[in-house]
Simulated assay, not measured.
Amino acid sequence: MKIRAGICEIFGSWLAIAILVFILSGPGLAQMREVTQPQVEPPRVFIDCHQCDLTYIRSEITFVHFVRDRNEADIHVLITIQSTGDGGREYALNFIGRNNFYDIHNTLKYVSKRTDSADIERKGLVRVLKVGLVPYVAKTDLGDYLRIDFEKRLPPAPVEDPWKSWVFNLGLSGSLSGEESKHFLSMHSNFSANRVTDKIKFRTGLSGYYSSSVFKIEEDGVTSDITSIQKSFSLSSLYVLSLNEHWSVGGWLGLSSSTYNNLDFNLNPAPAIEYNFFPYSESTRRQLRILYRLGFNLNYYHEETVFDKTREALLGETLTVIFEMKEPWGNISSSLEGFHYFNDFKKNHLVLWTNLNLRLFRGFSISFSGRFSKINDQVYLAKGDLSLE
């Protein structure tokens, strides 16, 4: 009996060990191992940029998933672009977190030089994109695979700009067409000089236009030529001084002449002041500006006007409200301008313009645009009867 009891005790011990090994190596342990394994699903990213090389960006950034629908994204990267004073481009990258990353929002900037090639520019943009995506990846289990590599660089040498931030443009265009009964010729030329720095903005432009239209008119068996010639010239300059992130002051000066508008000569100086409810540093994404101008107009007319004037000096004021916003759901641009002359408040105009683009769902967007104007300030209209000319 004692031998049989010993055998049973030994057999029971081995059975208990076998059961324990089976449990530890069974589905329960597998489930525990699955729980402790890191989640390697990368964040989903939507790049909102119409001028970026998206194919290159996807090929260079492989630690996230890129999606084509913003509603599927965990991270919406809204990229806006504006020109810099030296001819380069400034990219503002707005990182907007969603879902598990709703609390992470950052804005980074990348500035290219005028001399940068397209390849250098896209490489620089990708570098800043990678930096901006790091906080999101670090919040996932993929953060364990991140490696920070700091490239030590020598202090940049002072950049000498022989043009002193000036940018010049020259353009010339023309067209010529003809038929048996009519001929048309037009020429247009323009020149501009701009200088933009952190504190000031100066823009000046010179343009000229000439067109000639000849029509053959047959009346009572007699063919005659009717010639219409239009000429215009304009010189305009704008100077703006930034006082802080919201206020700026400046002035406008314009000289012009136009046969179409019956203006032999027009002089228009106008000091102005502007307030932006949003900081100017956010102007690439959103702005709500109120611009006030007090303008003086000295007009010399080609022909006597409907108000019996051959020349006159007028003082008027203009108030303009401009609203622009770019968001993941779309963008909107709108402006409202009101103007009147002080000598006669009935001589005024009101112009409203709006453009709205909405992204409703993947691959589908809808746009609305409209313009309303009420013009009562055409003091330059020539007196006289209508003719073929």
Rank of each mutant, 00 (worst) to 15 (best):
I3N: 04
E9M: 09
G12L: 15
S13F: 07
A16L: 07
I17N: 00
I17P: 00
S25W: 03
L29N: 13
P38S: 07
R44I: 04
D53G: 01
V64H: 12
H65A: 09
R68H: 07
R70N: 12
A73D: 10
A73C: 08
D74F: 02
H76W: 12
G88S: 07
H105F: 07
K109M: 01
K113F: 05
K113S: 04
I120A: 15
R122G: 01
K130V: 13
L133G: 05
T140F: 04
Y145A: 05
Y145D: 03
L146T: 08
D149W: 03
A157V: 15
E160R: 06
P162W: 13
K164L: 09
G174V: 08
G174M: 11
L185G: 06
L185R: 12
S192E: 02
R195N: 09
T204I: 01
G205A: 06
G208I: 11
Y209P: 08
S212Y: 09
E218D: 12
S224G: 11
S228I: 14
K231Y: 03
F233I: 04
S234W: 01
L235A: 13
S237M: 10
V240M: 11
V240A: 12
V240F: 05
S242I: 03
V249A: 13
S256N: 13
N262I: 06
L263C: 05
I273Y: 09
E274V: 08
Y275H: 07
N276H: 10
F278R: 13
Q287A: 12
N297V: 06
H302F: 14
K309W: 08
R311W: 02
T318I: 10
G330Y: 05
S335K: 11
S335Y: 11
E337H: 00
N348S: 15
W353I: 12
L356I: 14
S365M: 02
S365Y: 04
S367W: 00
R371A: 01
F372I: 05
Y380L: 01
L388C: 00
